[in-house]
Amino acid sequence: MAQIAVDSSPKKKNFLRSPYMLTIALLPIILAAWWLATTVTKSVPAILLPTPESVWIAFPRVLGADGFGDQVLRTLTEIAGGFALGASVGFFLGVLLSSSSRLRAAYLPFLSALEAIPTVILAPIIIAWIGFGIEGKILQAAIACFYAVFITTLSGLGLAEPNAVALMKSLRASKWQTMVKLRIPTALPVIFGGLQLGATTAIIGAIVSEFIGATGGLGYLMLRYRSSFDTAAYWVIIFLFLVIGLVVYLTIWYIEKRFVFWRRIEVTRPDLEKQ
């Protein structure tokens, strides 16, 4: 009955063997291919794909441009606001629908059908309704990310073990207590999957709606660079989105690790899961 070691990764922490090395190893290969295709062989015209050097040079120009910080801040606000709104609504609706099979039967098909409407075709409608301002972009990002959080919450809340539900019932726990103390914690790993997915779609939602029509933001900047055929600057912003996506992913991953600390270890112990 010895205590089981908590450490799930007994392997030595060797940076060279860490998965990040695979990412880093890929970088020079991509850069080399890019450089070969544009600078060396000139087989791809610069208007389609700028050379690595020109993008490198464009970085300080784009980042140092007047009011650039405001544009970044605006897009980040749209993403964060839309994500917070969409994820909250998605979570709330997931909890609501999970608690009633009548509500589920009535609204689940409808909500799922709504998800089939592409963000792009909603954008002009939203602009027509509430204008080019930041509110419309937040709404657009929220609509884009709500479904992922909603559907994962709904399915995650159904994952509580029958025995655990019976235990709560035998303690005369209310529906609400069972929800808060059992169903939501059980669903957290799945909900975090939905949050990851939702964060990505919130980014897409915000950018797409800026593309359709906006008075500011990174998507708006991209449109301006495109119309002046400044492909290199356009690519700089693509890289910025990559950075934003990475930071968002890592942030959620970090929060997940704090909240769902109990899960990964369990997954690595199939012998315990059987019991």
């Binding site: 073990e161 025995n163 059992l182 019991q275």
Partner: peptide, 10 residues
């Protein structure tokens, strides 16, 4: 009540 599984919340 006690069940076949311990039903401990992880």
């Amino acid at each position: 009540m006690m069940f076949q599984q311990a039903v401990m919340f992880p």
